[in-house]
Computed example of a mutant assay.
Amino acid sequence: MNTPFAAVLLAGGRSSRMKQDKALLHWHGQDLWQAQLHKLQSLGAERVLLSCRSEQPLYVSPSEGVELMHDPEGADDGPLGAITRCLEEVQMPLLVLAVDMPWMTAAFLREQLRKHESPDKGWFFRGPHGDEALSGLYVPAMLPLMQEALARKDYKLQHIIEAAVHTGLAITHALGDEQMPFFHNVNTPADLK
């Protein structure tokens, strides 16, 4: 994109099905959160954020240029709350990546950013199970939709994307067969194998 953008790694999930913190899983010689963060750092974002719980042992040095965004104590608003807080903080297009999408590539994300010509519109991909909400571009114009959803405790990100597309604030692209593996999640030990 020709417009400055920020990027955030969402690493604060509770990982209940995995029975251990997914962010700390080993992936090609490093913790998964580090591997995912390096992808985002390679994209040329003006700001890179790491969204996590304060008790998670995820440490970045100031020299890495990564901003920590801790979930508020007792927050139970899931990814919607985390993305909303980050978008309110950066006030620019925000590329989101979930920590549990290890097959997502920096090259794919870079290509989507390069092709996207409307920095005032979000973009997402739609697969066989609906919109892929945890890897896409959220924009400040979507904040009122997100804040309203939080206020009524409707935490489904797909509802936000549907409303944003309906009102012209976002676009969706159909996932091709070759792109679907990028969006696979690691939710259980079997998924990782």
Rank of each mutant, 00 (worst) to 15 (best):
residue 65 G to K: 03
residue 22 K to A: 06
residue 100 D to Q: 11
residue 57 P to N: 12
residue 116 H to M: 08
residue 64 E to R: 13
residue 124 F to C: 03
residue 35 A to P: 01
residue 22 K to Y: 04
residue 115 K to V: 04
residue 19 K to Q: 15
residue 49 L to V: 04
residue 101 M to N: 07
residue 44 G to C: 04
residue 67 E to A: 12
residue 135 S to C: 15
residue 120 D to W: 09
residue 66 V to H: 03
residue 37 L to F: 10
residue 32 L to V: 09
residue 47 R to S: 09
residue 59 Y to H: 15
residue 124 F to V: 04
residue 149 A to W: 00
residue 58 L to R: 04
residue 58 L to N: 06
residue 107 A to H: 12
residue 115 K to D: 09
residue 100 D to R: 09
residue 137 L to F: 01
residue 77 D to K: 06
residue 114 R to N: 08
residue 33 W to H: 10
residue 107 A to P: 00
residue 134 L to D: 13
residue 105 T to Y: 02
residue 50 L to Y: 08
residue 106 A to S: 12
residue 21 D to S: 14
residue 46 E to C: 05
residue 92 M to W: 00
residue 112 Q to T: 09
residue 82 A to Y: 05
residue 139 V to M: 02
residue 115 K to N: 14
residue 70 H to E: 11
residue 44 G to F: 05
residue 26 H to K: 13
residue 24 L to Q: 14
residue 32 L to M: 11
residue 92 M to K: 12
residue 99 V to N: 12
residue 127 G to K: 02
residue 77 D to W: 11
residue 93 P to N: 11
residue 139 V to S: 04
residue 138 Y to P: 01
residue 26 H to N: 12
residue 40 L to E: 06
residue 52 C to W: 02
residue 119 P to Q: 08
residue 33 W to E: 08
residue 142 M to T: 07
residue 93 P to Y: 09
residue 71 D to A: 15
residue 76 D to E: 14
residue 63 S to N: 10
residue 66 V to A: 03
residue 106 A to Y: 05
residue 47 R to I: 00
residue 131 D to R: 10
residue 96 V to W: 03
residue 43 L to T: 01
residue 112 Q to Y: 04
residue 31 D to S: 14
residue 80 L to A: 08
residue 46 E to K: 13
residue 129 H to T: 15
residue 140 P to D: 07
residue 138 Y to A: 06
residue 32 L to T: 07
residue 112 Q to A: 06
residue 146 M to H: 00
residue 58 L to M: 05
residue 55 E to R: 11
residue 77 D to V: 07
residue 131 D to M: 11
residue 47 R to Y: 02
residue 138 Y to I: 07
residue 145 L to I: 06
residue 56 Q to L: 09
residue 70 H to P: 00
residue 87 L to D: 00
residue 114 R to H: 14
residue 127 G to N: 08
residue 103 W to I: 00
residue 138 Y to S: 01
residue 142 M to P: 00
residue 97 L to H: 10
residue 134 L to V: 11
residue 19 K to C: 02
residue 69 M to E: 07
residue 83 I to N: 08
residue 98 A to K: 06
residue 97 L to A: 04
residue 129 H to N: 15
residue 67 E to N: 01
residue 126 R to W: 06
residue 66 V to Y: 04
residue 66 V to T: 06
residue 109 L to C: 03
residue 91 Q to P: 00
residue 135 S to H: 11
residue 86 C to Y: 01
residue 101 M to R: 14
residue 148 E to L: 10
residue 39 K to N: 10
residue 132 E to D: 07
residue 59 Y to E: 13
residue 58 L to W: 03
residue 23 A to V: 08
residue 21 D to M: 10
residue 108 F to W: 15
residue 132 E to Q: 14
residue 36 Q to E: 09
residue 145 L to E: 05
residue 37 L to V: 13
residue 29 G to R: 02
residue 123 W to M: 08
residue 115 K to S: 11
residue 112 Q to P: 03
residue 49 L to I: 05
residue 116 H to P: 00
residue 62 P to F: 03
residue 121 K to S: 05
residue 90 V to C: 12
residue 109 L to T: 05
residue 35 A to T: 09
residue 60 V to M: 02
residue 120 D to T: 13
residue 116 H to F: 02
residue 121 K to R: 13
residue 127 G to F: 06
residue 109 L to P: 00
residue 79 P to C: 14
residue 124 F to K: 00
residue 132 E to I: 15
residue 54 S to I: 12
residue 87 L to S: 01
residue 28 H to Y: 11
residue 78 G to T: 05
residue 127 G to P: 00
residue 31 D to Y: 13
residue 71 D to H: 15
residue 134 L to I: 09
residue 132 E to P: 02
